[in-house]
Amino acid sequence: MKEKDLYVDFKPQQLIYYVEKDDASYGPVVSGSYLSMHYLDDFIGKRNKQELALREQLKKGEISPIYYYLVMQEYGEKDLASRAGVSVRKLKQHCKMENFVKMPLKVLKKYAEAFDIPLVNFFHLLIAKQESTGKFSIQHLETDNPYFVVTKIDEAKK
């Protein structure tokens, strides 16, 4: 690829490409991501649609929160099962609400660690419309008790 054919003006995601320069030598140049420049809206749109659909299923009890996060974080089943210390068979069971409620707290904690979320997020969904305005922030603060967090709603830092 020739350098002049490459350049994409997309500052949020810069990449290194190796291209043919004017003097016919090959070398690195920095350019924005073509995909993100042209298709990021589509990616985010699909993701939001997916999230809303899963949320509805979650509210109806058709899926468990484990399945919700498994899909949203694009985990492979074997990878997630290994991180949670369970078999793939168990993981598949935990994706259903009737088995989710029987899960030991310790196992649930392992899942929470794999998803990097506080335990409490398996049991509620906090929707704050104004969060996106940047007027306040929501933080889950860890405590010495690994099974307990403090949810802090604060004025956003200027």
Binding site: L15, Y17, Y18, V19, P28, S33
Partner: peptide, 10 residues
């Protein structure tokens, strides 16, 4: 993504 954006140099 796998061919271009995930750190391949293009």
């Amino acid at each position: 993504i796998l061919l271009e954006d995930q750190g391949t140099g293009g």
